[in-house]
Design a protein around this nucleic acid. Sequence first.
DNA 1: CTGAAAGCGCTAACAT
DNA 2: ATGTTAGCGCTTTCAG
Lengths: 351, 351
Amino acid sequence: MTEMSSATIADVAKRAGVSSATVSRVINRNYPVATSTRERVEAAIAELGYVANAHARALAGSTNRTVGIIINDVVDPFYAYIARGVEREATVHGRLCMVCCTQGSHEKELALIDLLHEQRADAVILVGGAHEDRAYAAEVGRRARALHTAGSTLVLCGRPSLGDDVPTKVVEYDNEGGAFAITDYLITQGHRRILFLGGPPSLSTTIARLAGHRRALEMRGLAQAKELVHTGSFNRRFGYDKVRALLAEGLDFTAIFAANDTVAAGVMQALELAGVSVPEEISVVGYDDVPVAQELRPQLTTVRIPLEEMGRQAVRLALGVAGESDYLAPVQTTTRVGTSIVVRGSVAPPR
Amino acid sequence: MTEMSSATIADVAKRAGVSSATVSRVINRNYPVATSTRERVEAAIAELGYVANAHARALAGSTNRTVGIIINDVVDPFYAYIARGVEREATVHGRLCMVCCTQGSHEKELALIDLLHEQRADAVILVGGAHEDRAYAAEVGRRARALHTAGSTLVLCGRPSLGDDVPTKVVEYDNEGGAFAITDYLITQGHRRILFLGGPPSLSTTIARLAGHRRALEMRGLAQAKELVHTGSFNRRFGYDKVRALLAEGLDFTAIFAANDTVAAGVMQALELAGVSVPEEISVVGYDDVPVAQELRPQLTTVRIPLEEMGRQAVRLALGVAGESDYLAPVQTTTRVGTSIVVRGSVAPPR
DNA sequence: CTGAAAGCGCTAACAT
DNA sequence: ATGTTAGCGCTTTCAG
């Protein structure tokens, strides 16, 4: 059995008959080394199966060359696409990506920011909407400052800024605008009684979507009927159950705006089961444009968010990679991406 | 502006008027410390916003408390569910999880194993089928040995062992058995001409599925018709294009076994477009049982793999957590989970 | 072009 | 109960 501990740079140095400084130089290629020396060192590395210790490196040098991302859940496509963008852009900049999941727990989220800070991540990216909660916001703010002081950056991706006095960078998308646009589209098609379904009521994401929805209604002189708004959660089950219940109680509406595509999938299934045809009898729209939107029948008309691009922007912002080559620009601190509606087959004029 | 470098344990010690060892003790709670001292130290930590440096810790102590997972792509649900299992089980054992993506590149995969080794991950989990390639297998084997020597573990999750002389642990699922079962189900329903579609031909995953398929055929005395096997890739597009082409050339078949659910989604869309009804005219089955299977209409009959459980097993195996409390058992090195067919609405007897 | 030596921030004996 | 003191493995001046 081989010994249970790896070779160190000193072992390599001894074997190659040089100093450890020289070994470091051939590894990092940041300093001239004679070819013959380099070859001897490389041979020693291979023979010993030497693998540098990233911790010792991080400790001696400065940066750890990693970025951390904190999301709710890897299997949720909303997060997965953002994570993909982060992962890819991090790779482009030679960074390793650490993905952590909160399962929606605030405490876990705060603990993960700390953990990533301990790891000395070059950036920690917090993804997804935030619940309104002053105490929690204060905790996040405290950590943002700590990270900033340590030379790292907290970036908020898809959630509102914590205020100008909190050192974060933010990547936002036009959430309200997307909701406005798709509601207006529904109105244009002739719908007047539109059911808004899903989304945790205190989540910033839900609030913005609801605000856009309401603004569109008001712009057309339509009052927002209280019985038509049913927030709750972002899962499929909610859409399914709620539609079943509302159908049973005979509520009057001609279209449904699901707070996201997942909820819309549940909505469509409930409608299907009740024998209600989409879009002939009821129109349905969603939000996010994740893959399921294209699998539903009819295919779902929804709002597209450039999720992967948001992830990329988050790491660019954090790493200070110039978007434009304007060398006089101050360090950019906020990026905003647009949303757009994608029309498929789930909307028709009401009967 | 606060100074741009974080407080160290020495700063905390000075401020609290104790030695750094004492600070270390209160942080790690692994040694008695007087209550009054502890309080002073905690106050100092809070005032300074001290956050321990995980690298210094990893360097001084031994383990880094992280596990790494290498997958093709975060947004692919097959990988995402396994990643979720890894993430959750890692958390249970107090480990942080680093997720890395290869985009299907062998070189990147090897580089990532090295990277994770450099990070001194407690385990590196390699997920998904492998291509047949001796040189590549040798490279993976070399890294498995290096990891082993360093006291870490390479676990192969969903791919075949590299042989008994290579120190890895493996989590496998009954891939061949699932393919056998679902093919047999199709035959039982009366199908004789079954199209096998998709999966990279040299990937171990595809090979096993095809083998199970063939075995079921043979067991029923049916010869495998060459024109009925079309491997290719695991994406939706492949399923769509291939079915369109085969339909156009008038190939005779009554059922399609898509190598995974994603391919099945493409298959179903092509069938829909061609006006072929499922399952009345053509039956379709998939593999994996990822969410899309339930969104398709009709819902897809497919083979279920306990993906998340595989991820959990992988970390348990790597960390040496006893599955059973059999304290005499040797260190377990392989786990195998079963697959099962889930019957939904996409299969019917042929006309 | 190469070596010597001083840390980086922390933990773990070993003292007291 | 607390302090002292070595390192952990690497990078990086500073000297040759």
